[in-house]
């Protein structure tokens, strides 16, 4: 009995790799010109809304209050310092500090995240990055999950507490411009993969991310108006006004569902590649947390 099970396993295994060879057929939304080293200000050549959101201290209330034009400020009108109201993101910041201090009682949690001498300033700007230990591209939240597990605490990527710690760690980089380098490997390939995924159509709709955020940007979709995909990342994780603390990947699962596309697991390589792509498109924009948006 034991022998025949083994025979079965041996005979069936070698078939798998041959099947993986050919890429499946997909439709694509056409690329716009992203260049090799994108930055948030490149949006001026795309939706040309950069002028309205580049400085979150100077948002024009006439535009942010307009039912037809508010999409042009790219949700920056709810960022501090323009908007200093209290919201759930502030609760998350406090909770994040509490959990962080518990984890970092001996200082090795900060070290595991990559902080030098426990200093969290600027740490957010080093993510997403290639992680030798984890063998792939990781965002801050994936690294938090890994480093918390080392301390014996389960902080599932995408969970409230994981995201709260991310908001807390990110807050030390407030005001500092994002600056990931996608001109060198392995980040260069991650950027290219993310760019391709962003334009790849899937789901019952046969929509890509770019269907809404490139082809239909600024168009009315029954009360929703898709915004530019430039300049977004500086205020993530964010507090959604539907009362939910969301990491970027949790948001991706919602984007996918809204577009009729099967969501992937939080922390998957695909979502990390899209994170690299979108972070590069936010280069130059300052980190601004806690934030809120619809």
């Amino acid at each position: 009995m034991k022998r025949s099970t083994l025979t079965l396993a041996l005979l069936t295994l070698p078939l798998a790799p041959a099947l993986a060879a050919e890429a499946p057929y997909r439709d694509m939304t056409s690329y716009i010109d992203y260049g090799k080293s994108p930055k948030a200000s490149d949006d001026a050549k795309h939706t040309n809304t950069y002028q309205y959101w580049k400085d979150n201290r100077k948002i024009d209330p006439e535009i942010s209050n307009s039912l037809t034009d508010f999409w042009k400020v790219n949700w920056k009108y709810r960022d501090a310092p323009y908007d200093d109201t209290l919201h759930g993101g502030h609760d998350a910041l406090e909770r994040g500090e509490e959990v962080y201090k518990q984890l970092n009682a001996k200082g090795d949690f900060a070290a595991c995240l990559g902080a030098k001498k426990g200093d969290l300033k600027g740490l957010r700007l080093t993510y997403p990055r290639f992680d030798k230990e984890l063998g792939g591209i990781v965002g801050l939240e994936a690294r938090i999950e890994h480093c918390a597990a080392r301390q014996g605490m389960k902080l599932e990527n995408g969970s409230y507490d994981n995201t709260a710690v991310s908001v807390y760690v990110t807050s030390f980089s407030n005001g500092m411009p994002l600056k990931i380098d996608v001109t060198r490997e392995p980040m260069k390939s991650a950027f290219e993969r993310g760019k391709k995924l962003f334009h790849t159509k899937a789901g019952w709709t046969n929509f890509s991310c770019a269907t809404c955020h490139v082809s239909l940007v600024g168009k009315g979709l029954r009360g929703q108006i898709p915004t530019t995909h430039y300049g977004d990342i500086g205020h993530w994780p964010t507090w959604r006004s539907k009362d939910e603390l969301q990491s970027l990947h949790v948001r991706f699962t919602e984007c996918n569902r809204n577009a009729g596309v099967q969501p992937l697991k939080v922390g998957s390589p695909e979502y990390h590649d899209i994170e690299v792509f979108m972070t590069a498109l936010s280069n130059g924009m300052p980190v601004t947390v806690p934030s809120q948006r619809d």
Binding site: L155, E156, G158, Y160, A202, Q246, V250, T253, V261, P263
Partner: peptide, 26 residues
């Protein structure tokens, strides 16, 4: 789909209104 639960390190998973796995994914 994943729903973050306040002050918890675990996600709660809710059912979507439709089976989307029938079509190609990313």
């Amino acid at each position: 789909w994943p729903l973050p639960v306040r002050n918890s390190g675990e996600l709660k998973y809710n059912e979507h209104r439709q089976d989307l796995s029938r079509w190609p994914t990313l």
